[in-house]
Amino acid sequence: MFFHIVLERNMQLHPRHFGRDLRDKIVSKLMKDVEGTCSGRHGFIVAITGIESVGKGLIRDGTGFVTFPVKYQCVVFRPFKGEVVEAVVTMVNKMGFFAEAGPVQIFVSNHLIPDDMEFQSGDMPNYTTSDGSVKIQKDSEVRLKIIGTRVDATEIFCIGTIKDDFLGVISDPGATS
């Protein structure tokens, strides 16, 4: 799920940046530092959308660095247990398949793939129903339900299932909006 929230961070800046562009420098450093990172609490920080405020700087003794408390608005993405997401399959093997929803890596084990879908090896490994009407292979888009999540410093891992109603391959590419 995506959220638009306000976060705060203390930015340390080298004295050489002090000047007319101080604010821009802080913002660009902030973007570089936090976009693409992950935290267990908020999930994956997708993008900074605005700066709420830049607080008063505090000079550090000895180094001359200055710390600014910055409040910023950002879009975060955090998967939840029970959430249904759409993901792109990255790898298929006999244990199941791996898929990605943005930065999130999701594993769907063959226990959680409907029993009528069988693994087919070959140059393009895939899971296919006996009548061949549904096929999951690399680059397929699937809709799956998350049943477990784990957040590391830079990565989010999930366990997903497609063994439920309305889950599985999204046949119509237009439906992914």
């Binding site: 790898m91 093997n93 594993f107 784990r150 891992f157 366990i159």
Partner: peptide, 24 residues
């Protein structure tokens, strides 16, 4: 998978079983 049971999604921290690092 990443510290979670791949069937029920429960958090598991034991290091039992065989690692299949070449798959993931």
């Amino acid at each position: 998978y990443a510290g979670m049971c791949m069937k029920c999604g429960i958090k598991m921290d034991d290091e039992s079983g065989v690692a299949f690092g070449y798959i993931h």
